[in-house]
């Protein structure tokens, strides 16, 4: 019984990491715990911590907390499986072993290979260059810069896992490459290449989701996410600014 409540929290934690909204995770844990035989459930979740207290029929209370440290990466395939699992727990009432097996299966679901991420970054950058009004040459340059950005994120993630620093270095590289191509005379302006490549780094989705959290009533989670979005944008702008200032001094 206690073990199943633990699994319910595991499912919630994984949902949070793979990009579910806070209120969805709260609701899922709530429903799962009731389905597992609780008479009252108190759930409190923010983006970095979870607290769940469960009251059982025999008069016991159990509280568990989780510190969510892993960085959030959108993984909707995993979220899909976890969502179906929590649905099944509510509707069919699975046993502990079944829950454990299915949770492990969901955690080990198919991921996209790393080399394919390089292609994705390149294609996104190339497409958004055209989207923001760049020409074909700028778009081709963006393709290469996009792949280099993924490479930079790959290495900085291995050396220092600080996402603000990751984005700062990536922006420095983007801006350097963009100014280099202008110096070589391949393109006229750096704007389109920089903006298109920054689309993969900029927390536009983060900001929109943060405001959504604020409006749905998860004020604390929303505030945390907005601050995160603003800080990320600051790190990106700082990277851009560093290169332009230094470039102005040396060129």
């Amino acid at each position: 019984m206690i073990k199943s409540f633990g699994y319910a929290m595991d499912i919630g934690e994984q949902m949070l990491i793979s990009g579910a909204e806070v209120h969805r995770v709260e609701e899922s844990i709530n429903r799962m715990c009731y389905a597992l035989g609780a008479i009252r459930v108190d759930v409190f979740i923010i983006t970095s911590s979870m607290v769940v207290t469960v009251y059982t029929k025999d008069g016991n209370t159990y509280t568990q907390t989780r510190r969510v440290t892993s960085t959030k990466n959108f993984d909707f395939e995993k979220l899909h499986h976890l969502n179906n699992l929590s649905r099944e727990i509510c509707e069919k009432g699975l046993t502990e072993q079944e829950i454990e097996k299915k949770l492990r299966a969901a955690n080990n679901c198919k991921k996209i290979p790393v080399w394919f991420e390089f292609i994705c970054y390149a294609v996104i950058a190339g497409a958004f260059t055209l989207f923001f009004g760049g020409n074909i040459i700028e778009s081709f340059i963006s393709l290469f810069v996009g792949a280099v950005v993924r490479l930079s994120l790959f290495f900085s993630g291995k050396i220092i896992s600080n996402k603000f620093f990751d984005k700062f270095t990536a922006t420095v590289i983007i801006t350097l490459l963009a100014f280099l191509t202008v110096e070589l005379g391949w393109i006229i302006s750096v704007d389109k290449v920089i903006i298109a490549n920054i689309m993969t780094l900029i927390p536009g989705i983060g900001l929109t989701n943060a405001i959504r959290d604020l409006f749905t009533g998860d004020s604390i989670a929303g505030l945390l996410r907005s601050i995160e979005a603003v800080l990320t944008a600051l790190a990106i702008a700082a990277g851009y600014f560093l290169v332009t200032v230094l470039g102005g001094v040396f060129l």
């Binding site: 959108f74 993984d75 395939e77 996209i112 394919f116 991420e117 970054y121 294609v123």
Partner: peptide, 8 residues
């Protein structure tokens, strides 16, 4: 591109 990156 974003959809593939987000593993849909």
């Amino acid at each position: 591109g974003f959809a593939i990156l987000f593993n849909i």
